[in-house]
Amino acid sequence: MMKRRAFTASVLAAVPAMCLMGATAFAQDLREITFVQPSPSAINSFPVFVAIGEGYFAEEGLDVTVEAINGSGAVLQALSAGQAHFGRPGPGPLIAARSRGVDAVHIYNVAARSNFGISVEENSDYQNIEELRGKIIGTGTADGAEVGFARNVMSSAGMIAGEDFEFLTVGDGGPATAAFLNDEIEAYSASTADTAILNQRGMKVRDITPAEFGRFFGNGIATMADTIANDRELVEAWSRAFARGHAFALDDANREAVLAHLAAGNPQEGEDPEFQSALFDAVRSKTIPPEGSPHLGWYPAEVWAEWQDALVAGGEISAPLDDLDAAWTNEFAAIGSEAAGG
């Protein structure tokens, strides 16, 4: 069951010049849509919460409700079942879902730099992934983006899950800490945010992921192909507002406002301002496109091919997709970038 978060784009305080009567009429005209994210963190989906708080979605006629569910697999299920309009799944789960006939499409590369890594305890003897042969790697979810990423990394060293190493779903935060302390896992595949939380809670870890995997982008915005075909105006409106929220958050001059919007989206993350600020910096840094990218949200075709190759090699899909290019598009990120001023 998806948990609804009470934070929507119809917060009209972001439009102070509007009179109360006009604001009420405006709110009634907004189209209600749902965005699903694979964890409760507002920071991991910061462009959404900034676009809500700054009124960008409302300006596009959208009233966005955010729902947190467990992992990319659940996000894709919600999209395909028509329970949400947009979501933030990882590329590995999306390719795997498309191999099963789920016609989901990535439209904006949020984590343009890899926001996942395989970490071990800070004082452990493990120095590289080859040393994890025969070991157990913990994950936050059973089918989230961190699983596909770890498969990719391990397959590069000739290791296959179930044969050369094992995955164990342990959850994140406290449960992941307990799994390390109880020697249930030797390593943990986690997002930048998950790793920061472990370190903040006293479970010091270090990343042993090979540097070359930094090019493997992470979770991005997805919708269904039917939505693109039949409701294009919605996809364009979403893309403009989202990109404006992303660009606003990248400007340090807006930092105080951004952190306030994120605290409104997830009050628990805002309880420790110092940690919230540090986590935001870590997550935000992963959304800055690599050198040579023409705009925010841009996808490199060659990395999609590498993602697919890794999924085939790891046995997550039996064969390449008939049309990998149908799994993603840069068209709407370009529209959003133009609205955000480049």
Rank of each mutant, 00 (worst) to 15 (best):
R5V: 14
A9H: 12
P16L: 00
M21L: 15
G22Y: 05
L30G: 15
T34P: 03
P40Y: 08
S41Q: 03
S41R: 02
N44F: 07
F46R: 02
F46K: 03
P47F: 11
E59P: 08
V64H: 02
T65E: 06
E67F: 10
G73E: 01
A74D: 02
Q77E: 10
G82W: 02
F86W: 01
F86K: 02
G87K: 00
A97P: 06
A104I: 08
I107F: 12
N109P: 00
G117D: 03
I118V: 07
E130K: 13
R133M: 09
G138W: 02
T139Q: 02
G158R: 05
I160T: 11
L168R: 11
T169N: 01
G171R: 05
G173D: 07
A176T: 04
A176W: 01
T192F: 07
R215P: 04
I221Q: 02
A229S: 14
R232G: 14
F242W: 13
A247D: 06
A249I: 05
E269H: 07
D272T: 09
Q276C: 01
D281Y: 07
V283Y: 00
S285K: 10
I288V: 15
E291F: 09
P294H: 09
Y299Q: 09
G314T: 10
G314C: 04
D322W: 11
N330W: 08
I335S: 08
G342L: 14
